[in-house]
Design a binder for these strands. Structure first.
Lengths: 186, 186
DNA sequence: GTTAGTGCAAACCTTTTGCAGCTCT
DNA sequence: AGAGCTGCAAAAGGTTTGCACTAAC
């Protein structure tokens, strides 16, 4: 398997990061890298595939997976799970200099990014504590954003009133994952 | 879907944690909860299934998944990805009072746990920064343990000597996931 | 002209679902 | 008795692989 050179200088685009060591910067890879780079969002493979098809209708889903694997191994993109909020797929973002945590609202799905010194401190402590060489780190936090907290409180109150029982906190339930159902003869 | 009561007291076993709110503490669930509780390891669904079958050969894989989902939603167990070091499966551990990070060696697969104040500080900062209500948090760190660092250094030196080229650091490559292959007519 | 990359189809692993029958309480 | 749970079979979602062909260097 080819190994791609880690981005060291980043003179301009990410193009410089590839090329060395026999890795080819093909049309397909250019499209995909551009998409990941330019979209601020966290995209998953399927969405990336759909977007890439707009530019190149012949581009195959498999190429998306292979490219993502390459970029991931080369340290150009990071893979996220986002707490599996929407299923088992992975999400991708271009690797940034500054490490950050992802904060996911389990109700509305909004993702916030948190930068802060505890992350650096954590990293240093783990390295010195275990003599560990960190290659990648990922911290994800799931819960409820301020907006959804208010909404949930209201819903809970209304439900309680409707049932005429005293309000009692309930363990939060993750929204059921929207699985695509087969539509048997609609 | 039934909701199970969060463990509040934990007087002895985890049994008290269930029972309320119509959730039944069945033989199968007892077996599985015991396994997760007593094994220090991080088990995935398949391994858990195999181990449970030793006690109850009729226990079905589906029951494992359903039980894990229940325990997860009830906050009794935490789900880990362990950096997908071994594939796409999830790993489980009983929820502990003290939050901790998982440190995974990408070479030998060893998992260490790190407790430390940066984790608490991170949590507090995220809560106050976003007004976020944290339900669960997960931080995973991948890299090389001290043992494997030495090993990799040696291997690299040897490879370099064999090729008679100057030593040059290489981007670490994740070990290929061991996929079960179909054995077409051996 | 080589070597690496692509597309296609088919496999693969992990997890979920539908439903009839069983079992706790 | 009845809600809740289990097992079974079958499906789904997401990802990977084998192979012949194509494109980048």
């Amino acid at each position: 398997m080819p190994i791609i050179k880690k981005a060291t200088g980043r003179t301009g685009s990410s193009e410089d990061a590839l090329t060395e060591r026999g890795v080819r910067f093909t049309r397909q890879r250019k499209i995909l890298l551009d998409l990941i780079d330019k979209t601020g969002d966290h995209l998953d493979a399927e969405r990336l595939y759909q977007m890439a098809k707009a530019t190149d209708p012949k581009l195959n889903r498999v190429t998306v997976y292979r490219t993502l694997k390459l970029l991931k191994e080369g340290g150009l993109v990071d893979e996220l799970d986002l707490m599996h909020q929407a299923g088992e797929q992975h999400f991708y973002e271009t690797r940034r200099k500054q490490e950050h945590a992802h904060v996911i609202c389990l109700s509305c799905g909004k993702v916030e990014e948190f930068f802060g010194e505890p992350l650096q401190k954590l990293r240093r402590q783990i390295e010195s504590h275990f003599g560990f060489e960190i290659v990648l780190a990922r911290t994800e936090v799931g819960g409820y954003c301020s907006h959804c907290q208010a909404m949930r409180a209201r819903e809970m109150r209304e439900a309680a009133e409707a049932l005429a029982v005293p309000v009692k906190p309930v363990v939060p339930v993750r929204k059921p994952v929207a699985r695509k159902k087969s539509t048997p003869a609609q």
